[in-house]
Design a protein around this nucleic acid. Structure first.
Lengths: 209, 209
DNA sequence: TTATAGTTTAACCATTTGGTCAAAATTATT
DNA sequence: AATAATTTTGACCAAATGGTTAAACTATAA
């Protein structure tokens, strides 16, 4: 629990977030959430009518935790290289703090794509901002300024950036074992270094000259 | 079903693979596997004693499908750049053919890291080959030949390569929607192009001169 | 043909699980 | 203080689920 004094509804949502992001929708038991929140199982249904409703609330909450910071960077008018740097830095930070969140989002999206992707797309519509399109503009400008190769494809670049940030955290249980002898601290350090590594890696591969 | 005539045990394993990789351990119902295999639920327990045993068989089968091809490339004595090219090409191919497999592996590994990673590590031990270490040697040689920058870190490079191959397939339900208007063919094409894109992207970022 | 071993099925069982409900406890209102 | 509204609990329920078992079916060999 982040805060000590919280109303029941908040305590439930927080506990639910822990369990849902860790075990996914189908792996989560309402009883476990209740235990973690230190309350009776019936209370879950009192505040959130059903498991699905509670799941929806959690999913939204996780999105809200992730989107604002990252969108702020992406929608800023920083030049491309700085934007990449800021994004990578902030993104690796935030998913390191919530390591099970991205895998949770991806897995549940895979399970029920249309039902869940709707939430995301609506969020984009509401703020009238699509990160992919916005990124394409940035790349175009950088090309016109002669900073990046003409051959650079903005969509590939965007996907590359996301991949390089998310995958090493999502696949940590695997990677930490096959490449770091399961040394937690070593992997933490590795992730910290990745901020610079990924940034220079990305920029090196697109920079002209 | 790939083959028409299969013994019951094979039919079960194939159906189980479909359902498990799609929905994960906790989201899978034994009944659904039985239905998909066209047999009685009791038969599942006749051939594989329990759900966990069946899950274990599936997990191993998925590993076996992935490992050999990729390990063959990684353990070959091709020079670094060609090795990267061959690996990326083959890997994107195979995970495009089994799109839910990598997410399945990662998710289940996240759920029960020690229990499951053991299988993997044992597989490596058996063949006396660790892809990460082997890759480190290749990079070292390429450095000595003056082909790549001194600053290149082999572990980052390896993780980058895996990330760039796996994530775009694993997160397809999300990416296809936010960047490709949910156009399946467009995303297929995007993935196909990624083979070249990722290869040049990786090599550009490490090549000297 | 008949005995035998292996395969498949239907009926059942025990437990788990999401969910309900009425009563108790607590808090707010008059 | 008395009453009403809200919150919390424990007991309970129906459906789902992994698993068992005995019987039926099939193929094989003597």
């Amino acid at each position: 629990m982040t805060e000590l004094n919280k109303d029941t509804e908040g305590k439930i949502l927080e506990a639910a977030q822990d369990v849902f992001t860790e075990k996914g929708m189908s792996g989560t038991r309402m009883q476990e959430i209740a235990d973690k929140a230190g309350i009776n199982k019936s209370l879950l249904h009192y505040y959130y009518r059903s498991k699905e409703k509670l799941f929806g609330a959690v999913f939204k909450a996780v999105l809200v935790k992730f989107m604002p910071k990252t969108l702020k960077v992406l929608s800023s008018d920083l030049p491309l290289f700085e934007k990449i740097e800021k994004f990578v830095d902030g993104y690796i930070d935030i998913i390191t703090k919530h390591p099970s969140a991205p895998l949770f989002l991806i897995f549940e999206l895979h399970r029920n794509p249309d039902g869940i992707a709707g939430i995301l797309l609506n969020a984009f519509k509401e703020i009238g901002f699509n990160p992919v399109e916005s990124f394409a503009k940035d790349v175009k400008i950088a090309k016109e300024m002669g900073l990046v190769h003409e051959g650079v494809d903005s969509k590939h670049l965007f996907v590359n950036m996301m991949s390089l940030c998310i995958f090493p955290v999502a696949a940590r249980p695997l990677l930490q074992r096959i490449g770091f002898e399961n040394d937690k601290k070593a992997y933490d350090k590795f992730l910290e270094m990745r901020k610079l590594e990924v940034t220079t890696f990305l920029i090196n591969s697109i920079r002209k000259s």
